[in-house]
Design a binder for these strands. Structure first.
Lengths: 112, 112
DNA sequence: GTAATATACAACCAAATGGTTGTATATGAG
DNA sequence: CTCATATACAACCATTTGGTTGTATATTAC
Protein backbone atom coordinates (compact mmCIF):
# COMPACT_ATOMS: atom_id res chain seq x y z
CA UNK A 1 0.00 0.00 0.00
CA UNK A 2 2.98 2.28 -0.64
CA UNK A 3 1.89 5.31 -2.60
CA UNK A 4 5.30 6.26 -3.99
CA UNK A 5 8.83 5.20 -3.28
CA UNK A 6 11.18 7.53 -1.47
CA UNK A 7 14.67 7.82 -2.88
CA UNK A 8 17.62 6.78 -0.73
CA UNK A 9 18.44 10.46 -0.36
CA UNK A 10 14.93 11.24 0.90
CA UNK A 11 15.07 8.37 3.37
CA UNK A 12 18.45 9.61 4.57
CA UNK A 13 16.93 13.04 5.19
CA UNK A 14 14.00 11.65 7.15
CA UNK A 15 16.13 9.51 9.46
CA UNK A 16 18.71 12.28 9.79
CA UNK A 17 15.96 14.71 10.73
CA UNK A 18 14.67 12.32 13.41
CA UNK A 19 18.17 11.86 14.86
CA UNK A 20 17.91 14.96 17.04
CA UNK A 21 15.85 15.35 20.22
CA UNK A 22 14.88 18.95 19.49
CA UNK A 23 13.62 18.04 16.04
CA UNK A 24 11.68 15.05 17.38
CA UNK A 25 10.09 17.38 19.91
CA UNK A 26 9.15 19.80 17.15
CA UNK A 27 7.49 16.93 15.28
CA UNK A 28 5.54 15.99 18.42
CA UNK A 29 4.37 19.55 18.99
CA UNK A 30 3.37 20.12 15.38
CA UNK A 31 1.50 16.83 15.22
CA UNK A 32 -0.68 17.73 18.18
CA UNK A 33 -1.28 21.37 17.23
CA UNK A 34 -0.41 23.96 14.63
CA UNK A 35 2.29 26.23 15.97
CA UNK A 36 4.19 29.23 14.67
CA UNK A 37 7.95 29.14 14.20
CA UNK A 38 8.27 31.67 17.01
CA UNK A 39 6.21 29.46 19.34
CA UNK A 40 8.78 26.75 18.72
CA UNK A 41 11.67 29.18 19.15
CA UNK A 42 10.27 30.17 22.56
CA UNK A 43 10.25 26.51 23.64
CA UNK A 44 13.96 25.82 23.29
CA UNK A 45 17.09 27.28 24.79
CA UNK A 46 18.64 28.28 21.48
CA UNK A 47 18.44 31.11 18.99
CA UNK A 48 15.48 31.71 16.70
CA UNK A 49 17.74 31.03 13.73
CA UNK A 50 18.77 27.65 15.15
CA UNK A 51 15.13 26.61 15.53
CA UNK A 52 14.46 27.89 12.03
CA UNK A 53 17.18 25.57 10.76
CA UNK A 54 15.68 22.61 12.58
CA UNK A 55 12.28 23.37 11.05
CA UNK A 56 13.92 23.66 7.62
CA UNK A 57 15.55 20.24 8.06
CA UNK A 58 12.21 18.72 9.03
CA UNK A 59 10.51 20.43 6.09
CA UNK A 60 13.13 19.12 3.64
CA UNK A 61 12.51 15.65 5.06
CA UNK A 62 8.76 16.03 4.58
CA UNK A 63 8.11 15.65 8.30
CA UNK A 64 6.49 19.08 8.62
CA UNK A 65 5.07 21.69 6.26
CA UNK A 66 5.07 25.43 6.71
CA UNK A 67 2.24 27.60 5.50
CA UNK A 68 2.19 31.39 5.53
CA UNK A 69 -0.48 33.19 7.54
CA UNK A 70 0.23 36.87 7.35
CA UNK A 71 3.72 37.43 8.65
CA UNK A 72 3.56 34.17 10.58
CA UNK A 73 4.51 30.70 9.43
CA UNK A 74 2.39 27.86 10.72
CA UNK A 75 4.22 24.57 11.09
CA UNK A 76 2.22 21.37 10.79
CA UNK A 77 3.46 17.81 11.31
CA UNK A 78 3.04 15.40 8.40
CA UNK A 79 1.83 12.05 9.69
CA UNK A 80 2.06 10.54 6.19
CA UNK A 81 5.84 10.70 6.26
CA UNK A 82 5.94 9.11 9.71
CA UNK A 83 3.75 6.32 8.35
CA UNK A 84 6.05 5.93 5.40
CA UNK A 85 9.03 5.38 7.67
CA UNK A 86 7.02 2.85 9.63
CA UNK A 87 6.28 0.94 6.44
CA UNK A 88 9.95 0.97 5.63
CA UNK A 89 10.80 -0.52 9.01
CA UNK A 90 8.06 -3.09 8.58
CA UNK A 91 9.84 -4.20 5.42
CA UNK A 92 12.92 -4.80 7.56
CA UNK A 93 10.92 -6.85 10.01
CA UNK A 94 9.58 -8.87 7.06
CA UNK A 95 13.13 -9.67 6.00
CA UNK A 96 13.74 -11.00 9.47
CA UNK A 97 10.50 -13.00 9.52
CA UNK A 98 11.28 -14.56 6.15
CA UNK A 99 14.63 -15.66 7.53
CA UNK A 100 12.95 -17.25 10.52
CA UNK A 101 10.52 -18.98 8.18
CA UNK A 102 13.42 -20.36 6.13
CA UNK A 103 15.09 -21.65 9.29
CA UNK A 104 11.84 -23.32 10.33
CA UNK A 105 11.57 -24.99 6.92
CA UNK A 106 15.14 -26.17 7.22
CA UNK A 107 14.53 -27.64 10.65
CA UNK A 108 11.33 -29.30 9.41
CA UNK A 109 13.28 -30.88 6.53
CA UNK A 110 15.94 -32.07 8.95
CA UNK A 111 13.25 -33.80 10.99
CA UNK A 112 12.15 -35.93 8.01
CA UNK B 1 4.51 -3.11 25.95
CA UNK B 2 7.80 -1.26 25.92
CA UNK B 3 10.42 -3.28 27.74
CA UNK B 4 12.77 -0.45 28.56
CA UNK B 5 13.01 3.17 27.53
CA UNK B 6 15.78 4.30 25.25
CA UNK B 7 17.52 7.53 26.17
CA UNK B 8 17.39 10.47 23.79
CA UNK B 9 21.03 9.80 23.00
CA UNK B 10 20.31 6.17 22.13
CA UNK B 11 17.39 7.17 19.92
CA UNK B 12 19.64 9.71 18.21
CA UNK B 13 22.16 6.97 17.48
CA UNK B 14 19.56 4.63 16.04
CA UNK B 15 18.07 7.21 13.66
CA UNK B 16 21.53 8.51 12.78
CA UNK B 17 22.63 4.96 11.99
CA UNK B 18 19.64 4.46 9.71
CA UNK B 19 20.32 7.73 7.87
CA UNK B 20 22.79 6.12 5.49
CA UNK B 21 22.02 3.82 2.58
CA UNK B 22 25.06 1.61 3.11
CA UNK B 23 24.18 1.11 6.76
CA UNK B 24 20.55 0.33 5.93
CA UNK B 25 21.81 -2.23 3.44
CA UNK B 26 24.03 -3.79 6.10
CA UNK B 27 21.01 -4.07 8.38
CA UNK B 28 19.05 -5.78 5.59
CA UNK B 29 21.82 -8.26 4.89
CA UNK B 30 22.42 -9.08 8.53
CA UNK B 31 18.72 -9.54 9.19
CA UNK B 32 18.38 -12.15 6.47
CA UNK B 33 21.64 -14.00 7.19
CA UNK B 34 24.67 -13.94 9.44
CA UNK B 35 27.60 -12.44 7.59
CA UNK B 36 31.22 -11.71 8.38
CA UNK B 37 32.57 -8.18 8.39
CA UNK B 38 34.68 -9.10 5.35
CA UNK B 39 31.58 -10.35 3.49
CA UNK B 40 30.11 -6.90 4.00
CA UNK B 41 33.36 -5.20 3.01
CA UNK B 42 33.35 -7.16 -0.26
CA UNK B 43 29.85 -5.88 -1.03
CA UNK B 44 30.60 -2.16 -1.10
CA UNK B 45 32.92 0.03 -3.09
CA UNK B 46 34.82 1.37 -0.10
CA UNK B 47 37.67 0.31 2.16
CA UNK B 48 37.41 -2.44 4.75
CA UNK B 49 37.97 0.16 7.47
CA UNK B 50 35.06 2.26 6.21
CA UNK B 51 32.71 -0.72 6.37
CA UNK B 52 34.08 -1.53 9.81
CA UNK B 53 33.10 1.96 10.93
CA UNK B 54 29.60 1.55 9.55
CA UNK B 55 29.23 -1.73 11.42
CA UNK B 56 30.54 -0.05 14.59
CA UNK B 57 27.92 2.72 14.22
CA UNK B 58 25.17 0.13 13.81
CA UNK B 59 26.49 -1.81 16.79
CA UNK B 60 26.55 1.31 18.99
CA UNK B 61 22.95 1.91 17.96
CA UNK B 62 21.98 -1.65 18.87
CA UNK B 63 20.92 -2.42 15.30
CA UNK B 64 23.44 -5.24 14.92
CA UNK B 65 25.61 -7.32 17.21
CA UNK B 66 29.01 -8.77 16.46
CA UNK B 67 30.11 -12.12 17.82
CA UNK B 68 33.58 -13.59 17.49
CA UNK B 69 34.01 -16.89 15.69
CA UNK B 70 37.69 -17.63 15.49
CA UNK B 71 39.34 -14.72 13.75
CA UNK B 72 36.04 -13.83 12.12
CA UNK B 73 33.33 -11.52 13.41
CA UNK B 74 29.79 -12.52 12.62
CA UNK B 75 27.37 -9.62 12.31
CA UNK B 76 23.71 -10.21 13.10
CA UNK B 77 20.83 -7.77 12.72
CA UNK B 78 18.83 -6.98 15.86
CA UNK B 79 15.13 -6.96 15.01
CA UNK B 80 14.26 -5.87 18.56
CA UNK B 81 15.79 -2.46 18.01
CA UNK B 82 13.92 -2.07 14.72
CA UNK B 83 10.73 -2.91 16.55
CA UNK B 84 11.58 -0.39 19.23
CA UNK B 85 11.89 2.38 16.65
CA UNK B 86 8.58 1.33 15.18
CA UNK B 87 6.93 1.63 18.58
CA UNK B 88 8.43 5.07 18.94
CA UNK B 89 6.93 6.14 15.62
CA UNK B 90 3.61 4.61 16.60
CA UNK B 91 3.64 6.94 19.59
CA UNK B 92 3.94 9.83 17.14
CA UNK B 93 1.00 8.53 15.15
CA UNK B 94 -0.97 8.33 18.38
CA UNK B 95 -0.27 11.99 19.07
CA UNK B 96 -1.73 12.76 15.66
CA UNK B 97 -4.75 10.51 16.20
CA UNK B 98 -5.49 12.10 19.56
CA UNK B 99 -5.43 15.48 17.88
CA UNK B 100 -7.90 14.29 15.27
CA UNK B 101 -10.09 12.89 18.03
CA UNK B 102 -10.03 16.26 19.83
CA UNK B 103 -11.01 18.01 16.62
CA UNK B 104 -13.87 15.57 16.13
CA UNK B 105 -15.07 16.20 19.67
CA UNK B 106 -14.89 19.91 19.08
CA UNK B 107 -16.93 19.63 15.90
CA UNK B 108 -19.45 17.38 17.65
CA UNK B 109 -19.84 19.96 20.41
CA UNK B 110 -20.30 22.70 17.85
CA UNK B 111 -23.12 20.68 16.30
CA UNK B 112 -25.06 20.61 19.59
C1' DG C 1 57.32 -21.95 12.23
C1' DT C 2 55.85 -18.99 8.50
C1' DA C 3 52.64 -16.99 5.60
C1' DA C 4 48.09 -15.52 4.71
C1' DT C 5 43.67 -13.94 6.44
C1' DA C 6 40.37 -11.27 9.35
C1' DT C 7 39.91 -7.74 12.18
C1' DA C 8 41.10 -3.57 15.03
C1' DC C 9 42.43 0.91 15.47
C1' DA C 10 45.00 5.36 15.07
C1' DA C 11 45.91 9.43 12.40
C1' DC C 12 44.53 12.23 9.02
C1' DC C 13 41.35 15.03 5.87
C1' DA C 14 37.24 17.16 3.45
C1' DA C 15 32.55 17.95 3.94
C1' DA C 16 28.42 18.28 6.62
C1' DT C 17 26.11 19.59 10.93
C1' DG C 18 24.44 22.57 14.51
C1' DG C 19 25.05 26.36 16.60
C1' DT C 20 26.02 31.63 16.61
C1' DT C 21 25.38 36.82 15.26
C1' DG C 22 24.09 40.27 12.12
C1' DT C 23 21.24 42.17 8.57
C1' DA C 24 17.18 42.47 5.50
C1' DT C 25 12.28 42.16 4.48
C1' DA C 26 7.35 41.69 5.04
C1' DT C 27 3.30 42.24 7.83
C1' DG C 28 0.46 44.05 11.67
C1' DA C 29 -0.56 47.60 15.28
C1' DG C 30 -1.22 52.24 16.75
C1' DC D 1 3.53 56.77 8.53
C1' DT D 2 6.18 54.63 12.09
C1' DC D 3 7.38 51.08 15.10
C1' DA D 4 7.35 46.45 16.57
C1' DT D 5 6.98 41.61 15.28
C1' DA D 6 7.84 37.36 12.56
C1' DT D 7 10.57 35.42 9.52
C1' DA D 8 14.49 34.72 6.20
C1' DC D 9 19.07 34.20 5.23
C1' DA D 10 24.15 34.91 4.94
C1' DA D 11 28.57 34.45 7.10
C1' DC D 12 31.11 32.40 10.39
C1' DC D 13 32.89 28.72 13.64
C1' DA D 14 33.63 24.27 16.32
C1' DT D 15 32.51 19.61 16.18
C1' DT D 16 31.11 15.45 13.96
C1' DT D 17 30.95 12.42 10.09
C1' DG D 18 32.55 9.41 6.57
C1' DG D 19 36.02 8.37 4.10
C1' DT D 20 41.23 7.30 3.53
C1' DT D 21 45.94 4.87 4.53
C1' DG D 22 49.02 2.67 7.55
C1' DT D 23 50.18 -0.35 11.27
C1' DA D 24 49.30 -3.97 14.80
C1' DT D 25 47.34 -8.28 16.45
C1' DA D 26 45.04 -12.69 16.48
C1' DT D 27 43.80 -16.82 14.14
C1' DT D 28 44.08 -20.27 10.52
C1' DA D 29 46.47 -22.83 6.75
C1' DC D 30 50.46 -25.08 5.04
Amino acid sequence: MVVYELSDEQVNKVFRALADATRRDIVRRTLSAEVRVSDLAAAYDMSFAAVQKHVAALEAAGLVTKIARGRERIVRGQPDTIRHVQELLTAYEDIWLRRIARLDDFLADEAD
